[in-house]
Computed example of a mutant assay.
Amino acid sequence: MTPPPVDPPPALSPDTPDAPRIRVAVEPTAAGTVLRLGGEIDMDTAHRLDTALRDALSDGGGRRPLALDMSEVTFCDSTGLNTLLRARQRALRRDIPLSITAVSEQVAHLLDLTRTGSLFGLPSSRDPGASDGPRHEP
């Protein structure tokens, strides 16, 4: 009697927990360190970002600037934003410049909506006189 055929293992998809939904590349440069981020930053992946940020802020023992390139981030929720804000606090305590140098449209919207982009050296796209809601003229 022959054994039944064995089904091949399922291919990893972005919804599979083992699939890397976030990409972090560390690039040392003459001016400091660049973290190139891509994919999704949410409650399931923020710990990987946090680890990379902690490593980059403690690496080398110097006060070399840390720049984040988030141009390939497709999603970032409040957990991701909190991870970035905590990293900013750690960087400030260590007197290490931390900035975001490039953002995707989704990240730009999040930072603009929460008015936190300026904390990372990004200009706000909001007009200072703009309101958060529709205006009703009398």
Rank of each mutant, 00 (worst) to 15 (best):
G32Y: 10
L113R: 12
L92Y: 00
S104P: 11
Q106R: 15
V34A: 02
I41Q: 04
Q89H: 02
S125A: 14
A130F: 06
T51S: 15
V24W: 06
L92I: 03
I100D: 06
D132S: 13
V26K: 15
P134W: 02
P65G: 06
D127G: 00
D59P: 01
Q89V: 03
R63C: 02
R63K: 11
T29S: 14
L68G: 07
D44Q: 09
P20M: 13
A56Q: 04
L98S: 11
R63P: 01
D132H: 12
G60Y: 13
L68M: 05
D69L: 07
N82I: 00
R48M: 04
P3I: 09
G121I: 09
R115M: 12
G129T: 12
A46F: 03
G133I: 01
G117D: 14
D42G: 06
T51W: 14
F120Q: 05
P3T: 13
P4T: 11
T2Q: 13
E40L: 04
R88V: 00
L84W: 05
P3E: 15
P8I: 10
D69K: 04
D42T: 01
P17W: 13
A52L: 03
Q89N: 04
L113S: 10
P10D: 01
R93V: 02
R23Y: 06
R64K: 13
E105D: 15
P128N: 09
M1V: 08
L68K: 06
H136S: 02
S58C: 04
D55Q: 15
E27Q: 07
R21L: 09
D15T: 02
A46N: 05
V34S: 03
